[in-house]
Simulated assay, not measured.
Amino acid sequence: MRAPGFWWREAPTPAARLLGPVGALYGALAARRMARAGAAPPCPVVCIGNFSLGGAGKTPTALAVAALLRGLGRRPAFLSRGYGGRLPGPVRVESGRHRADDVGDEPLLLARAAPAIVARDRVAGAQACIEAGADIVVMDDGLQNPSLAKDLAIAVFDGAVGLGNGRVFPAGPLRAPADGQWRRIHAALVIGEGAPGARVLAQARERGVPALSGRLVPDPAVAAALAGRPVLAFAGIGRPEKFFATLRDIGADLRGTRTFPDHHAFTAAEADALAAQAAAQGLLLVTTEKDRVRLPATMPVTTLPVVLALDEPEALGALLRGL
Rank of each mutant, 00 (worst) to 15 (best):
F6M: 09
W8F: 15
P12I: 04
G23D: 05
L25C: 10
M34L: 13
A35S: 08
A40T: 15
P41N: 07
P41T: 02
C47W: 01
K58C: 06
T61N: 09
L68T: 05
G71Y: 03
G71E: 09
G73K: 08
R75M: 04
A77I: 13
S80V: 01
V91W: 12
H98D: 10
R99L: 11
A100L: 04
D102V: 12
L109F: 14
L109S: 13
R120T: 14
Q127F: 15
Q127S: 13
C129V: 06
V137I: 11
V137Y: 13
D140L: 01
D140M: 04
P146D: 03
D151T: 05
I154W: 00
D158C: 07
V161W: 04
L163N: 01
P173Q: 00
P173E: 03
D179H: 10
I191L: 14
G197A: 02
A202H: 03
A204Q: 00
R207G: 03
R229G: 03
R229C: 05
P230G: 06
P230I: 09
F234G: 03
F234A: 04
G236A: 07
L247Q: 09
A252M: 14
D253P: 01
R258W: 10
F260W: 08
F266L: 14
D272T: 15
A279R: 15
L285F: 11
T288Y: 08
T288W: 03
D291Y: 06
P296M: 15
A297G: 13
T298H: 15
V301Q: 14
V307Y: 06
V307P: 02
L310D: 00
E314Q: 15
A315E: 12
L316R: 04
G317M: 06
G317R: 07
G322H: 15
L323E: 07
